Amino acid sequence: MTPDLCRLLDIDIPILSAPMGGAAGPDLVAAVCEAGGYGTIPLWGRPVAAVAAGIDAVRARTGGNFAVNIRLDLPHDEAIRACIDRQVHAVSLFWGHSPATIEAARRGGLTVMVSVGSAEEARIAAEAGADVIVAQGWEAGGHVWGQVATLALVPAVADAVNVPVVAAGGIADGRGMAAALTLGASGVWIGTRFLASREATIHPDYRARILAAPETASEWYGDLYDGNWPKAPHRALANATARAWREAGAAAPGQRPGEGEAIGLDPRGAAVRRYQSYTPHPETSGDIAAMSLWAGQGVGLVRDVQPAAEIVREIHEEARRILNAAPGLLE
């Protein structure tokens, strides 16, 4: 199944874990790698020493290849250098365009994955030397770069480039994986399903809401949770914060109900404020349900807490069964 991507990443299963900031720590990334997939750890916005420490923490848990996720809208040259110095297998670049960064990473021996929201962005990244294109559909949870749904985006991107394409957005089981592969993807990028993994570093109340949510509970917002990350569209579970904001006429930042009030404390004791871009950690306290509970539209398919390795194997095996039966589906 998708040998080109698997050879490039040196993996057995073309399932990649999404770099969910605050949720995808070394344990989750390593567990996905150990199961034969490919983990991605978010290390953006950190000092070089913290980037190096994050890389070392994953390597202490797995000998498998993984990627370091880096935001292009933040200073990132030193992080790229740390990845090169640490001889990480790959970097995952998102939230911006930077052919120069792609070229620098490639010169340093890194495999480069670039997240895009359109076929034109994919072409630009591939021409700059990207090895893998991640086509992120509008259904994806967390911060969403584009506005095209996965079903339409993946084949458009696959037609536009000659490098492996990884489908992201709304994929939470083997049916979604099989569909993505038939659309032209070489693998899948999964986030929301891994929020229900035992290794995800999220608050129990957040996980419980993921497990109970229907597919309609995931909503797209242009600028709701903009604290610490302004002007960045995102998708999260509907909650009391979002309802109050809508009832107030979807007021602009600076005019929203309860804006700036402390609704909890992070593990260091710092205030978590309403409308802040923040992933509730297991040790976060306060009104967890009122915080930014990132989730994609695949959330309605997430019903059990499982080890990450079991999730990888289950999705892969289901996709194989479906694809093996495909010749008979139209008879």
Rank of each mutant, 00 (worst) to 15 (best):
A200T: 09
R106C: 13
P257R: 02
N239T: 03
E139I: 09
E247M: 06
V32A: 02
D12N: 14
G117V: 00
A18Y: 02
A325T: 04
I263N: 06
G64D: 14
A104P: 00
S17F: 00
T182L: 12
G141D: 05
D173N: 10
A309C: 08
D131E: 08
A270L: 14
G22R: 11
G328M: 14
T40E: 06
M113P: 01
G25Y: 09
V48H: 03
T101F: 01
V272I: 15
D73Y: 15
S197P: 09
T192P: 02
V154I: 11
G108R: 03
Q255M: 15
L323N: 05
V68P: 00
V88I: 12
A309L: 07
A290S: 15
V299T: 05
T40F: 13
A251K: 12
A53H: 05
Y278S: 13
V272N: 10
L224C: 15
D304T: 10
A168N: 07
V68M: 12
I311W: 07
V51T: 10
A262K: 11
A160L: 03
P233F: 01
F94H: 13
G249M: 14
P267C: 08
G109I: 05
L74C: 10
C33M: 11
P19S: 11
A105W: 01
V144D: 00
L151Q: 14
D131K: 03
V188P: 00
A208F: 04
V302H: 11
A319R: 02
G286M: 11
A57V: 12
A309N: 10
S92W: 15
G25R: 13
A53G: 04
E199G: 10
E261C: 06
S285R: 09
L301N: 12
Y278D: 04
R207I: 05
W245P: 08
V302K: 08
E310M: 01
A208S: 06
V299C: 03
L151K: 10
G260A: 13
V134K: 07
I55T: 01
D131Y: 02
F66R: 15
R71N: 03
L93K: 12
A200D: 07
A57I: 11
V272W: 14
V299K: 01
S92D: 15
D159F: 01
